[in-house]
Nucleic acid binder design. Sequence first.
DNA 1: TTGTGACTAAAAGTCCGTG
DNA 2: TCACGGACTTTTAGTCACA
Lengths: 76, 76
Amino acid sequence: MTIEEGFGLILKKYRNQSGLSQEALAFKSGLDRTYISLLERGKRKPTINTIFSIAIILNERPSKLIKELEDLLDAV
Amino acid sequence: MTIEEGFGLILKKYRNQSGLSQEALAFKSGLDRTYISLLERGKRKPTINTIFSIAIILNERPSKLIKELEDLLDAV
DNA sequence: TTGTGACTAAAAGTCCGTG
DNA sequence: TCACGGACTTTTAGTCACA
């Protein structure tokens, strides 16, 4: 699994937990609906700013998402 | 302070702690020396992959760097 | 040893749409 | 509600010569 694929899985998980649609998350974070879709499918590598923007909207600490990503990648 | 400026400070701190020059870090991480310089001065927003690459060379967990960045930004 | 300007190639990110 | 695609603009990735 690549870093971006792992990030996509984690993003999707937290977004679903928050009850937000891709479109709602996109709107709140100032990103594009199709870009959220690309991220969740592991087709894009977010910049550090994008990671922070999304994490904040999801009410999570960026480091928590990254920690979970590390664990996911280590687990393979 | 912007996210990328904060990241630059943290990168520089850890690089200095490791005793590596920008050039040495660049060589080990397969990046360009001037790109490391750009990152440390907050002139670039690294992608998630770049963050992971650099953290690994510095023998740190990416989440630790991000955690420190959060604290730095919160502290302001 | 590092900062910087100038640059090209590549990827981030947007906006239109469809099924 | 989402995956997916084409076409697009903006920004980062990555390199070089020079100070």
